Every structure is written in structure tokens, then in C-alpha cells.
Amino acid sequence: MAALATAVNILGMLFLAHAVYSAYEHSLLPSSSTPTAASYILPQALDPKVNLPLDITLETLFSVFLLCAGVVLSSPELKPIQWNVWAGRLERSKEAREIKEVGVGGGNPYAGLEERAGFLDIRAASRGFEEWRQQQDGGKIES
């Protein structure tokens, strides 16, 4: 699939280069320098000064279509939209379980959030405080 995408991109670039060169050569012709009729739809600043022949216009559009198709064909596979599906696939893959460097890899993509330095587990801290308070009060719980 990558070879097909590369071939389509190269073909699209060749067609686009030829269309640009043809448009440039056409603009140098003496017959193309005659003023064109003013457009009632476009403002004067956007009105083209040179009318390109239909074949150059179609070649340009075809080359842009080929380039768009080549870019789409060469793009990587899309990831699932749902995070749990993506994380499940990642945990099941062998490459994700391999630790390549410190802090990278290891299966669960969210494990780094729970194991980071400075992460405070409020429930464990409140249980510890409750145990400390009970020890201080001699086992009495006051309301």
C-alpha cells in the first residue's frame, strides 16, 4: 500500500508541476495579455488577469485530487475514538509491554499518572489520619 501511495504522490506532483509550468507559459503568450471582461461576481482585486485554458485548469484539479488521494493512502491506520478500546489494544500489544527507557512503555498508558512523584492518594491519607486519631483517642470515636 505504501508503494501505491508513493506512486500516486509522485504522479500528482508531476502533473502539478506540468500544470504550473503550462500556466506560466500561457501567461507569457501575447494573446493572453489582452484584458479580459470584468467579472460581476468577483471583486476587482480577485478578478484573474489571465484566462487559463480548460485543459490547464483540469490538469491542475486532477493533480490536486491525486495528491489528496496519495496523502490519504499513505496515512497511518486511525486509532479508535473510545479511550478504553485504545488502551485495551495498547495493553495487549507486545511492544507496549516492553520498557524501552525509564518512564516509557510498560503496558497501561495511564500507569504513569498513578505512579508519579507527588501524587497524593486522598483516601489512603484519610484512612491513615483516622487510624492516628483513633490511637490518640484511645479507640474512642467522637461525633
Rank of each mutant, 00 (worst) to 15 (best):
W83C: 13
D121H: 09
L42N: 01
H18G: 10
Q134G: 15
I99R: 03
F15A: 07
E115Y: 13
Y24M: 12
Y110F: 06
A111L: 09
S74Y: 03
S126K: 04
F129S: 12
L78R: 08
I56H: 00
A124V: 06
S39A: 02
P35C: 01
N51G: 11
P30V: 03
P80L: 01
R97N: 14
S22F: 12
S22Q: 05
R127E: 15
G107A: 01
V50H: 05
E59G: 12
R127D: 15
A96Q: 06
L113S: 08
G128S: 11
E114P: 06
K49G: 09
V104T: 02
T57R: 14
T36C: 05
G70S: 04
L66M: 04
L61S: 02
L61G: 08
T36S: 14
A117F: 02
V85M: 09
E77T: 05
E59V: 06
E115W: 10
G118T: 05
P109C: 01
E130F: 10
L113A: 08
E101A: 12
L73H: 01
H18F: 08
N51R: 14
L90N: 11
Y24H: 12
V71W: 14
V72I: 07
A69G: 05
I56K: 06
A69L: 12
V85Q: 09
G112M: 01
L73D: 02
W132Y: 14
L52A: 08
R127A: 15
I99Q: 03
